[in-house]
């Protein structure tokens, strides 16, 4: 009787990113096709790897896969892509899809033990919340070595005999790191913003206005402060809670809007309207800034919960009072 063996399936890839790869990343940053920006899970080869070449584990979010392979110029390596449902390594590890089980399964599916003669896989350090290194070894015989946080340190890591420096182990969150995350925040608010504009338009039709260009730019400003300015300036804004940081910048904005409109010099610019802006605009920024906790790399669940227990009721009260002030102002 003949024992049939499965064929090894290896997909060839390269360290070069094409225009389409880069365009795809840009689109994902703006939320276009972001949930379907995937590569096929499985075993990939970069360069001309042999049975001694390192095995690098990654996620099947194409942005993760691309940011790994572009750092592998002139490196011969295997890339083992796990099925993380198109989610990046760190988030997927938190959810458990980048996990011990999936790693063990994927190694078995691609028959990794037949491809390489060594017994080591390099898992990105940010995959650690999902992977139990000692369990992987127990069930597969493969040793897990945690690689650097950032793929750009991989070449140095490999050259130094798989030793990561303290610097390579630390997550950073630079102004640029924060900036690239802001487009998706803006896109996320667009639906609600359009609804608000619709309501204001209806109120105008009902004669409860007029809401005009000032309200428009005041609101847009508050959104940009919450979604872009607060995230970018994050560590420089005093205080810890994100909502507070957003509120503070939103408050400065509200005062600015009032001054631009001639408050307190112009008598027809009523105190109610001015106060309305001061009540409404800062909590709008605060709410959006608070949501950036999800994009940040250092907020804990306990911390966010503590912040929200205070911030959410405050935001609701301030906005309701502000809306009442503006409506009263429209009636008189």
């Amino acid at each position: 009787m003949e024992i049939s063996s499965r064929e090894l399936k290896i997909i060839q890839t390269s360290a070069e990113l094409t225009f389409n790869d880069i365009l795809g990343t840009w689109k994902a940053r703006w939320g276009i096709n972001r949930m379907n920006f995937k590569v096929e899970p499985g075993l990939y080869s970069v360069g001309k790897p042999d049975s001694n070449s390192p095995v690098l584990v990654s996620a099947n979010y194409k942005m993760s896969f691309d940011s790994l392979r572009k750092e592998l110029m002139e490196v011969n390596a295997w890339i083992l892509v796990l099925d993380t449902k198109g989610v990046n390594v760190w988030c997927a590890a938190g959810k458990g899809t980048f996990g011990t089980q999936e790693l063990l399964n994927r190694m078995a599916i691609v028959q990794l033990e037949k491809v390489v003669s060594h017994r080591t896989v390099i898992v990105p350090q940010l995959g650690a919340p999902g992977i139990s290194a000692h369990e992987v070894t127990k069930f597969s015989g493969f040793k897990v070595v945690y690689g650097p946080v950032r793929a750009k340190d991989l070449q140095e890591f490999l050259k130094s005999g798989m030793k990561a420096t303290a610097e390579m182990r630390r997550v950073k969150f630079t102004a640029y790191d924060r900036l690239v995350l802001t487009p998706i925040e803006l896109v996320g608010t667009s639906k609600v913003s359009l609804m608000i504009f619709g309501v204001l338009f209806l109120l105008n039709l009902l004669g409860l206005g007029p809401f005009g260009i000032v309200d428009f730019y005041a609101y847009i400003g508050a959104v940009i402060i919450g979604c872009v300015l607060t995230p970018v300036l994050l560590p420089w804004i005093p205080g810890s809670p994100f909502a507070w940081k957003g509120w503070l910048l939103g408050f400065i904005w509200a005062v600015t809007v009032n001054i631009l409109n001639g408050w307190t010099a112009v008598p027809q610019y009523s105190i109610l309207r001015a106060l309305g802006y001061i009540f409404i605009l800062p909590p709008v920024s605060a709410y959006l800034a608070m949501n950036f906790t999800g994009s940040s790399t250092f907020t804990s669940f306990s911390g966010v919960l503590k912040e929200m227990r205070k911030a959410v009721p405050m935001i609701i009260i301030l906005i309701v009072v502000g809306i009442l002030l503006v409506l009263v102002d429209s009636f008189i």
Binding site: N88, G94, E185, N291
Partner: peptide, 13 residues
């Protein structure tokens, strides 16, 4: 849960 997969691409991961 960290699940932004639904909808128009809200924030987080």
């Amino acid at each position: 849960s960290c699940d932004c997969s639904g909808g128009s691409g809200d924030n987080c991961c």
